[in-house]
Amino acid sequence: MTVSVAVASVCAVFGLVGIGFYGLMMSRNLIKAVVALQIAVKGVLVAMVLAGKLNSQLAVAQSMALTVLVADTIVAVLGLALAVQIRRHFGSLDTTEISTLRK
């Protein structure tokens, strides 16, 4: 693995995390927000494995990435369960419509 590929990989990490953050800021749909969060965490996953490879500690990085992967999946499950329940109770997935702070 050459340095240029490493730099391209870091750019991919920044791209994925940036797209995820942008989606989180711009989307008003709860399920879309979970999709954006998943994309951002995928970037973090690649960053952890890449950092482990560049620092010659790939096994430690993989075990930590495994924890991140499990936590990310559980966050997606709980987020989707919350979205489904909110859709049932409020009749909408729009974050501004379900907000009760202004009423």
Binding site: L45, V49, G52, K53, L66
Partner: peptide, 15 residues
Amino acid sequence: LFLYQLGAPEIAVIE
């Protein structure tokens, strides 16, 4: 696929 190319096949399979 990218994780596999980075040399982490176990995480790649789980992902």
